[in-house]
Simulated scan of single mutants.
Amino acid sequence: MPRVHRCRAAGCHNMVEWPANYCSQHQSLEATLQTKRDYWKYNHVTRNRSSSKREQYKFYKTPQWKHLRQLVLDRDYGLCQYCKANGKITLANTVDHVVPIEIDQGLATIAGNLATICTDCHRQKTAWEQSYYGTGQANSHTGLPEIHDVKRVAKLMQQSKTAQRRG
């Protein structure tokens, strides 16, 4: 006899055979579930593969980081500092290190090295950091000088974005 369980869709009482998660009526939700699993795997397995990355991730769970994060959000009034440097006003709720921890561990708890950043700018900045500093899983550090100024980083991010569109 096959193993069955309820469909995972909220309020649905249809029965489904394992290993399926949704009935035929809610099959479109299967892709969403896979995306959630991939996200979980990245955050809990891939991202923490090396010991240094594991330590960085632990830091973001500490009360010290939570207090520092709130301090920076209040200081920046919840506005993306990178958009602000480009003359735009964007609400944001992420706090990012201007100089990545991977480059300088000593700047991890310095409020002056932190800035509020929106999702789009964070994605662009991560890509820019990978090309400029050589950060990331498989990259090696380039040895280029640290840039501590948000306005300068925003300008370099824009230049990098423009260059990618052209080429």
Rank of each mutant, 00 (worst) to 15 (best):
I147E: 15
D76L: 09
L73Y: 08
L156F: 10
D120T: 13
W18Y: 14
P145W: 03
T35M: 15
C118N: 10
P145G: 08
G78Y: 15
H122V: 03
C23V: 05
L79A: 04
W128D: 12
I89E: 15
P19R: 06
L33V: 02
D120A: 11
A85D: 10
A163F: 03
V72C: 15
T162D: 15
N48R: 14
H141T: 05
S50D: 15
R75T: 08
L73V: 05
A111F: 04
S131D: 13
V72N: 11
M157D: 02
D38M: 07
G134E: 09
I103E: 13
H122Y: 00
T32R: 09
R6E: 15
P100S: 07
R6S: 14
E17Q: 14
Q137T: 14
L73W: 11
A20D: 15
I103F: 03
E129I: 07
T126K: 13
S140M: 10
N113A: 08
N48F: 02
L71I: 12
Q64W: 01
S131F: 09
C23R: 01
T126D: 15
A10P: 09
P63Q: 14
Y82A: 09
E102F: 00
D74G: 09
V98E: 00
T35H: 14
S28R: 10
V98W: 02
P100C: 04
H5A: 11
Y133S: 06
G136C: 02
G136R: 08
L79D: 05
D104R: 11
H97G: 05
